[in-house]
Design a protein around this nucleic acid. Structure first.
Length: 538
DNA sequence: TAGGTCACG
DNA sequence: ACGTACGTGACCTAG
């Protein structure tokens, strides 16, 4: 491993610097403490950059990022315990170093900033060693900074024509449905206002309501509407109105606005934000493009490969459940995965006490829900709500599950104890999430903390693994398939765009790099598809 | 700006 | 007696 470049700064020279900053009225501009802030100012990525030390990413791994505040001043103070010499508010209106005209001032600012960044980096590097986060930081997160920069610059190609057609279609249908709702309720009101809709449904029409929210308005959520489906003829139309306006505003119109002149949409990944180690995607969010409904599929179909090219889409098969098996060491679940069994069918067989061949599709669906819910830190109540079953049945399912996979149960219990003892949860690669909730006086918060203690090692380890896979895929494609580029990550899924002739090569490469990203007691399986749209490739 | 709602894994 | 599954981001309304 190459060691990162870290400049050493003594506290004396730092103090001297502070006084000079005051003397010369030089301001420190926090613009180059992270690769991303620097990269945004460049038209091309920095060439030949083999290693970096990114203070923002380091702060994230050390849990010194507070909320979504990744400003250098905050990171500096939380890392060093020294008050940042420039008030954060005073820097907000200033031009970035890269845009500054006055060369002399630019140099002075850059020098001042570099010293502060280098000092913070020096402190961080020591903290990383102390907390055994060296591999996570240098082998996963730092390389990922460059991988993500590539993906963001590549962008996803979309059909503006298709999105426009969809927008026109949605627009027409929405206004028809709107009229229908006014007729059927005998009232013209703002359907998109939960408050007004609640008034019409529960006050005027007197339909049976559920719970009130924080503002004292009865919920009009999809779940409530579904339960009222046959109670009034307007309800189905309201549900369709909701679905279509969502697709139109967030996806049709929202995405059209983000298409750049080369026909591509470029998201921004946030690498230093989530509590578990996952990425997030913003402006636009390309990690929540519809797929679960037939209308939603049409949006996904508008993500296309340019002429002569294809999309190759690979996703991990049940990675979180495989990790639950591997990390708990439950022999029964591990064996099921090693034998290539359908895990949901296997679980259903145990839950309903029938042979695997006789498991019905609804039994399998219920078992699938139970499998997922276990990873979330299930409660009897939560499961009963989700499956629309009684509390007793739900309790029976959970107890039966625990008997079927005994080591999963003891593992989850051990995670709770560990969280309470250490004050944090950790992933297989040592990523930490501190569990301040466990010290709360509030029982609900404490219970939330326990669920998080169980969930974070699973969700977070999955996040670590796909990050490793992304770095491997990015590197392998660069070396072996020049036409190919990574264009998206959606938590357990990677998408590559390449020349048609290279599709099979890419597919094999993705599977190879994803499945072998890490060695576990159970196999990791990646499924891969090829198509000329995102929908068809999946 | 906060809450409600809903899109995804 | 109470609230009740993990992680996100965007859009809309209302105060």
């Amino acid at each position: 491993m190459k060691s990162p470049v870290v400049y050493s700064v003594s506290i004396d020279s730092l103090n001297e610097l502070f006084s000079k900053i005051k003397d010369y009225e030089i301001s420190v501009l926090p613009s180059s403490y992270s690769y991303k802030t620097a990269s945004k100012c460049l038209s091309e990525p920095i060439k030949d950059l083999k290693s970096i030390f990114d203070v923002e990413i380091c702060a994230y791994v050390l849990n010194t990022v507070s909320g979504n505040d990744v400003s250098f001043g905050t990171i500096f103070e939380r890392t060093t315990g020294i008050i940042f010499p420039i008030d954060s508010e005073s820097t907000s209106g200033q031009v970035s170093l890269f845009e500054m005209e006055d060369t002399d001032k630019k140099l002075k600012n850059a020098a001042g900033e570099a010293l502060l960044v280098a000092y913070a980096a020096n402190v961080q590097a020591r903290q990383i060693e102390e907390n055994k986060l060296t591999n996570l930081l240098y082998m996963i997160e730092f390389p990922l900074v460059l991988t993500l920069d590539r993906i963001e610059r590549n962008g996803m190609y979309v059909s503006k024509d298709e999105l426009t057609r969809l927008h026109d279609d949605f627009k027409t249908r929405i206004s028809e449905i709107e009229k229908k709702i006014y007729e059927l309720t005998g009232e013209e009101f703002l359907i998109s206002s939960p408050k007004q809709l609640s008034n019409v449904l529960f006050e005027k029409l007197g339909l049976k309501h559920g719970k009130k929210g924080k503002t004292g308005v009865y919920s009009t959520s999809a779940e409530v509407l579904q339960s009222l489906y046959d109670e009034h003829p307007a309800i189905p139309y309201i549900m369709e109105y909701r679905a279509l306006t969502k697709l139109d505003s967030t996806y049709a119109v929202g995405l059209i606005d983000k298409i750049e002149s080369d026909g591509r949409i470029r998201t921004t990944f946030t690498q230093a934000m989530t509590n578990t180690g996952r990425l997030s995607s913003t402006e636009p969010n390309l990690q929540n493009i519809p797929v679960r409904s037939s209308e939603g599929e049409k949006i996904r179909n508008a993500f296309i490969a340019p002429e002569g090219r294809v999309l190759v889409d690979a996703d991990y098969s049940q990675i979180e459940l495989r990790l639950l098996a591997a990390m708990s060491g439950d022999e029964i679940m591990c064996e099921a995965f090693r034998e290539g069994q359908d895990i949901h069918r296997r679980t259903a067989s145990g839950l309903f006490g029938v042979p695997e061949e006789e498991v019905t599709s609804s039994q399998r669906a219920a078992a699938k829900t139970v499998n997922f819910s276990i990873v979330y830190g299930v409660t009897e109540y939560g499961l009963s709500q989700d499956l629309h079953i009684s509390f007793q049945e739900s309790k029976h399912f959970i107890e039966s599950y625990k008997r079927q996979f005994p080591k999963v149960t003891s593992y989850l219990d051990s995670l709770k104890t560990k969280g309470e003892d250490l004050g944090y949860a950790e992933t297989l690669f040592g990523r930490r999430r501190y569990l301040n909730e466990l010290r709360s006086q509030n029982k609900n918060l404490r219970e939330f903390g326990l669920r998080v203690a169980m969930n974070t090692p699973i969700q977070g380890t999955a996040a670590d693994i796909i990050k490793i896979a992304m770095n491997r895929v990015n590197k392998a494609l660069e070396e072996k398939v020049p036409s190919a580029k990574l264009v998206m990550q959606v938590h357990d899924e990677l998408i590559v765009e390449c020349d048609k002739a290279d599709a099979e090569t890419c597919s094999k490469l993705l599977i190879e790099e994803m499945e072998n990203a890490v060695k576990l007691p159970v196999p990791l399986i990646a499924d891969c598809g090829i198509g000329d749209t995102w929908l068809k490739a999946k």
